[in-house]
Amino acid sequence: MAKITYKSFDGTTTIVDVPAGRSVMRGAVANGIAGILAECGGGATCGTCHVYIDEDNTVPLPPMLDLEDELLEVTASERKDNSRLGCQMPVSEDMDGLVVHMPERQL
């Protein structure tokens, strides 16, 4: 279990306990948090669970694989240095306190 903070583009903040092993994306979708679409259900294939990791982040993140890197090149909102796909970040206990920001649009 880790507490993840989701900040939507309009400023709404939602804090959710996400069980270890679930992805950052599922943590949002399962709690009905708007701003993460996850059209493909979590396969690194659609790029609609794009998030920006908080600039002051200190928690360790899973490594980025090629497919995620490629998809981030074509996301609907601009890719930044702190862009990730929520579905490619399985949550572990040591990610407690992670803060992610949702982009303006996913499509």
């Binding site: 690194a44 294939t45 659609c46 790029g47 497919l67 490629e70 998809l71 090149e73 074509v74």
Partner: peptide, 9 residues
């Protein structure tokens, strides 16, 4: 096949 960016575009 393993070209998700092509698919999105």
């Amino acid at each position: 096949a393993n070209k998700p960016a092509d698919h999105v575009l």
